[in-house]
């Protein structure tokens, strides 16, 4: 997994709250047994006018040409709620979005995103509101997200700090595999297993 240090990119505004994982990747695309091939179906029901996905919806903001190379998505509260499907971060990442800014994320989505080398950035509702308005007023505006310094630079140049657990930051910076990390502690796992009571083993 490639690490993330610093991203300078066009930021795309998705001005909705409670964007759920059914919306991010609808169920009809979950029958794949691979981790790839989800990007073209990301936001399917909003992105296409027909079920087959042949007619692009010109009114869906992420379809605008200016956002085709965007790697940062800015959205409202409770992003990624609902189903635990990891196909949602797989789809977003394949569509190009590795960094998502929102006032809050659903807990399962948040973990899934981190496990896929994506960076979910929590900023206050007020800050997101300010950034959202700037992006809507100036389509194609760029933002900078710096994981090293845990800062975000808004289109107007204002710099905001964000918080991220040190462990997750380290993993993202280095692109670490979390199973490999845990397997360092195999002895502790074996020690724990030796003490499990009979009713639970």
């Amino acid at each position: 997994m490639a690490g993330i240090q610093k991203m300078i990119s066009v930021a795309a505004p998705l001005d909705r709250s409670n964007v759920d994982t059914d919306q991010i990747i609808p169920k009809q695309f979950l029958t794949k047994v691979e981790r790839v091939g989800f990007g073209e179906h990301c936001f399917h029901d909003w992105r296409y006018l027909d079920e087959a996905g042949t007619q692009v919806n010109p009114d869906f903001i992420l379809n605008q040409p200016v956002y085709q190379d965007a790697h940062i998505l800015v959205t409202r509260e409770n992003f990624g709620c609902g189903s635990s499907r990891e196909h949602a971060p797989w789809a977003l990442k394949e569509m190009g979005y590795t960094i998502i800014l929102a006032p809050s994320f659903a807990d399962i989505f948040y973990g899934n995103a981190l496990n896929n080398g994506m960076l979910p950035v929590k900023l206050s509702e007020q800050v997101i509101d300010v950034i959202m308005k700037q992006l809507l007023a100036e389509p194609g505006a760029q933002m900078t997200v710096d994981l090293e310094s845990k800062t975000v630079i808004a289109p107007d140049g204002t710099c905001y700090d964000f918080d991220l657990n040190d462990f997750h930051r380290e993993c993202l910076l280095k692109g670490l595999d979390s199973i490999g990390w845990t397997l360092q502690f195999e002895d502790a796992i074996s020690e724990y297993e030796a003490k499990i009571p009979a009713w639970r083993s």
Partner: peptide, 16 residues
């Protein structure tokens, strides 16, 4: 609790 597929794999490999 519900988990993503990377975590499913993590539990399979480590039971943690």
């Amino acid at each position: 609790f519900g988990i993503g597929t990377s975590e499913v794999e993590h539990v399979m490999a480590t039971q943690t």
